[in-house]
């Protein structure tokens, strides 16, 4: 149970960073933290206490195995996360070139 609460805390920290911080880099870090919290949650879904890898071999009976599918999903989702992180850092660098600041309250050429 404790691990799930850690997951929730991590997600909340990420969400807080994304919503409340004014520095672009901190917002990006918040996004990454929230992403990892979700990834951690997916891995936990397939985890079993004292479980073993689900590799089939002759003369062996597997009683308690870890679900391998969530791990495959997390691998995919980490790769997608990497693509997004690379893109957003690139955009942040360009924003710094244009505006000379990372403060989102001073990056306001668009009016809502």
């Amino acid at each position: 149970m404790g691990v799930y609460i850690l997951c929730l805390v991590l997600f909340s920290v990420g969400l807080y960073c994304m919503l409340r911080k004014r520095n672009i880099i901190k917002i990006i870090i918040g996004l990454i933290i929230a992403e990892y919290a979700v990834n951690l949650f997916i891995v936990l879904l397939g985890y079993r206490m004292e479980g073993r890898a689900p590799i089939y071999a002759a003369n062996q009976e597997i009683l308690n195995m870890v679900d391998p599918l969530p791990q495959a999903l997390v691998l995919t989702s980490i790769v997608i996360g990497l693509a997004i992180t690379a893109l957003v850092v690139g955009i942040a660098m360009r924003i710094y070139e244009r505006y000379g600041t990372f403060d989102i309250t001073r990056i306001n050429k668009l009016k809502g």
Binding site: A92, N108, L110
Partner: peptide, 10 residues
Amino acid sequence: ELEASFKYLI
């Protein structure tokens, strides 16, 4: 464009 893209991305 960069500002809009950043907002959209996040």
